[in-house]
Amino acid sequence: MAPLYQLDRIRHHYNGHTVLAIDDWTLSAGSITGLVGANGCGKSTLLKLLGFVERPAEGEILFNGRRTTPMDDATRRTVVLLPQESHLLKRTVFANVAYGLRVRQDRHQERERVAQALEWVGLPADAFARRPWFALSGGEARRVALAARLVLRPQVLLLDEPTTSVDGASAQRMKAAALYAHRQWGTSLIVASHDLAWLHEICHDVIHLFAGRILGTGLQTLLFGPWLDLGAGRVAMALTDGQRFVALRPAEQADAAVAAIDPRRLTLLCSDQAPSQAQAIMEGILSSLTLDPRAGGINASVTVGHTEFRVHLPADHPALAGLTPGRAARIAYAPEDVRWYA
């Protein structure tokens, strides 16, 4: 079976500035994929290309094995994007949610389906369906926008920072609704977000975008430098609280390189445990502990300075005993386990 997406030598530019450069990337159907990276790294652009809202300047996107462009209405309509700025049409909530159905000339049981979609995002149709576009809070507007996508029961749902700048209750509802779509209809989700804890909780895979390129996949922690040469083949990045993240010097020039460390290569030390000679140590605050639903085990996040390190541990790891978020925690790793992206 062909993969859901297959990207081949994709280049995209805005005003002569290359914002996306992906040579080869595939994604299989039925998955939940996270997309992380700093603002301006190309997440929104990638989602627009995947949603066939824009056509890449160069390269091809194969969708279910077929070459697809924004002109291909039938295929395009199985993919639905929730853009970062969810613009509501100047109509009622009902008309906003029903717009996609009407575009598809699918008016069958429209009222019921719109009401149902509104329920999924926690907006009772009785109270909201007739409201005009301007009579909604920010979180409500975002939820209406999501309902307008969910009502289409898409094969692929692309969410561009769905929960950024919405209130906690709305974010909760939206996360639940997105997962509902995935479970109910097997919708593939691709989610760009800064909410790493959420992504780690739901995603099968996470893709790191940096300056328009894919910097590997997985739940790894990325460190962007600047790198200080310590001599003896070692470099270090200063963390904001005075500690340093130490790694072996990369093969290529160090100043532009990005370091990555896999959660499985990091470990927590018990309070009285001494590190081995080869290990580097950092002290931080445990910020979260979650169960890894797929791989089993525990995902821990430890904040050092402003950097959050993700650590994967077996559920029975001794360092977890009596440890709760908010407590100080020591993490250890071997500097040679740090991987480099040029």
Binding site: K48, G51, F52, V53, P70, D73, R76, R77, V80, L81, L82, P83, E85, S86, H87, L89, K90, Y99, G100, V103, R104, A145, A148, R149, L152
Partner: peptide, 24 residues
Amino acid sequence: DANLRVTLRSLGANRRQLMRATLW
């Protein structure tokens, strides 16, 4: 709003539907 086009396209509007909705 520049996001109107993206919104309409992302909801599946074709070129004609995009124009009509923009006008409206």
